[in-house]
Computed example of a mutant assay.
Amino acid sequence: MINRPNAPAPDSATAVPARKPRLPFANAWFFPAAALYAAFILPCSVLALLGLLPALPGLATPAGHAHEMIFGFALAVIAGYLLGPQPLRFTLTLLGCWLLARVSFLLWPDSWLALASAAVFAAGLAWKVLPRFLGAAKKWRNQTVAPVVAALGLLSAAASSGFGASFDQRVLLEALLLLAALMFFMGGRIIAPAVAGYAQSQGRQLAARVQPNIEGAVLILLGLALVLNLLSWSLTRQLTGAALITAGVLTIIRLLRWQPWHCARPDLLILLLGYTWLALGLLLFGLSTWLPRLPLSATLHALSVGALGSLTFAVMARTRLIYRFRDPAAQPWIQAVALLISLAALARVLPTLLNLSRPGWLLLAAASWSLAFLALALLLWRCRTAHPDSTRVRPDR
């Protein structure tokens, strides 16, 4: 019998260094906050506009309602999605700045506190997000995220500065166009690989994925519309409409080349539905600049409620389901709930287009939207812990 020598105990020089604990994702905090705020702010605003509730100072006008949809809700989702893993202290500090900006705008709009808190939040978001896209991205299309986020941050501060109603409306329209560009780019980068992977699992090959030519063309058209929208000349309005209509048509072409009729998975269908709202919103926005009889509010709600609501809902649910279950379709009930957002969008767009009496439709839209995001907040709470084997899973895949 041969005695094996005892293995030497590892000393400090040969010991394997302990792995650093992974930083928590910022979306674990920002997504639930955004969902709860969406569920709260829209019905409060609608009820105040209908005279059924006392209006908070920041929600006394339709512009205040749009301000909080864009710079309150949407910016929180953007922060959660783009920040990635961050030290918990930084995430909570930035979330506190966002919350202070919301409270100060609702109670003291156009105050120095509203302006300062919005500016600090925007600066913190830009500090972390911009270098990731400006430094790492090589193609100009990938680098567009950085200026869009920076511009949204600047506009959020400008919209809290109290320059007047006409200035606020121009800022909100610019912000909505920036969000449309971000939804087009980021939505496409999520949908294309997801639909292609699903097609492959079904034994098919999807040739059209990112479609860089269409992507580049639409980003250029939306950038042109952003510049032209700042001018008040009649010719620039016509050119803005042409750019937006063309962008909407190209978005439809991109969507059709993904062959959505072959897709039977609910989580992907909700993403595709949100992208459909985006194309429809761009078309309506462009047509409203050509046709004075087409109400601008229908355009705004197709983009803000239909596209922004559906895409942010789908992305937040998808991100946290992958993080918790490693499967974006693990909770199919949430995809059915997402249809309430499209119901809310239809309740805001159709009565405006058909010139119907709107109070009942407004209440239906607010109730549908609020129920959807309350359900999402519940899901996000249940998905707050990670899957035991998800240390290498990227929640934004």
Results as ranks from 00 to 15, higher is better:
V218S: 08
G360E: 05
R324V: 07
L95K: 03
S304P: 07
M1R: 05
I190Q: 02
L235S: 11
F105T: 03
A366W: 14
A79E: 00
H262M: 10
T276E: 14
T352C: 14
Y198Q: 11
L300Q: 14
V315G: 03
G203N: 05
S161N: 08
R22S: 13
L152D: 06
I341R: 09
L363W: 12
L106F: 15
A116L: 07
R392E: 06
F73V: 00
L271C: 05
L311F: 06
R265I: 12
A307E: 08
S104H: 08
L125Y: 00
N3M: 13
L362Y: 13
A18H: 10
L231R: 03
W127S: 15
A137T: 08
T93N: 12
A35S: 09
M69C: 03
L354G: 06
S156I: 01
Y37R: 02
V305M: 07
A39D: 14
K128E: 13
A242D: 15
S117F: 02
T299S: 11
R397V: 09
G187M: 04
A242L: 08
L380I: 14
F167R: 04
A314V: 00
L49Y: 15
L228S: 09
I341L: 05
G309I: 04
G64L: 02
I322S: 12
L107Q: 14
A336N: 04
A314N: 03
S156N: 01
K20W: 11
A217M: 14
F25H: 00
W258E: 09
L154T: 08
S104K: 13
S368D: 15
A9Q: 15
P43A: 01
F325V: 05
V103T: 14
A242W: 10
L340G: 00
L134C: 06
A116C: 10
T312Y: 00
A55L: 05
V349S: 14
L172M: 13
H301K: 12
L23Q: 11
Q335D: 12
A196K: 00
W261G: 04
S232F: 14
P388Q: 12
A159L: 04
E174A: 08
K128M: 12
A18Y: 05
L134S: 08
T289M: 15
A317D: 01
M1F: 09
L94N: 15
P131A: 08
L106K: 09
H262Y: 13
R19F: 04
W381F: 11
A247H: 08
L226E: 06
C44E: 06
G188R: 03
L115S: 10
L255S: 00
A123G: 02
Q335V: 13
A207C: 11
A101N: 01
L291A: 08
L346V: 13
G281P: 03
L296G: 07
L95R: 02
F313H: 07
W290E: 13
S297V: 09
P54L: 03
L50D: 13
P212N: 12
V145D: 12
I245R: 11
L363M: 12
A116E: 14
L94I: 07
A344E: 15
L273T: 07
